[in-house]
Simulated scan of single mutants.
Amino acid sequence: MNVIDIPGLPSAQKQGLLPSEPVQPRPTAMITTLVPGRWLNVAPHSCHTPISGESPLIAVTAGDQRQGTPEPKDTWPGIERTGEFVVNVTTAETTEHIEAVARGLPARPAAPSL
């Protein structure tokens, strides 16, 4: 696994690490959130964009309702409850895992509950 020492890079190099041109298909980021007292949520998000190189910041979108149902999605409620989330950048090596997580699954706690 490659690790990038972001704090040790000059601003121009930090900005260069973030994709800035429209890419199709878009790279997928996995956003993880904790749903307090319930579970860890992992969800693929392809709608994200760089907004700053110093400090490296990206903007992401999170829907509030599962497509075709009245059920809420889990990512945004988790962010609202805790104020925290992690954006995990994916690679070609993680494609199978991304596809597995992208499948619509009913909300349920993973073992053990958090």
Rank of each mutant, 00 (worst) to 15 (best):
D64Q: 09
P112C: 08
L114D: 12
C47P: 03
V35N: 15
L9N: 02
M1D: 13
P70Y: 03
A102S: 13
A111S: 14
T28D: 05
L105R: 14
E54W: 01
V89L: 12
I6V: 15
L17T: 02
P36M: 07
T91L: 09
V35M: 15
Q15L: 08
D74H: 11
G78H: 00
T28S: 05
H97D: 11
R103H: 10
T75V: 06
V3L: 09
P56C: 00
L34V: 15
W76V: 05
P7C: 08
F85D: 00
Q13E: 15
P19V: 00
R66D: 02
A107Q: 12
T61L: 12
D5R: 06
F85A: 07
L114C: 12
K73H: 13
V87T: 14
I4W: 04
R38T: 12
E96C: 05
A111T: 15
V89M: 10
E84Y: 11
L34G: 06
L17H: 01
F85S: 01
C47A: 14
Q15W: 07
L40K: 06
P109N: 11
T49R: 09
T33R: 02
R38V: 14
T91E: 14
E80N: 05
T33Q: 02
S46T: 06
E71F: 07
D5P: 03
R108Q: 14
R66S: 04
G16W: 03
G63N: 13
R81E: 14
P70A: 12
T33K: 03
G8W: 04
W76L: 15
I58E: 01
I51E: 02
P19G: 00
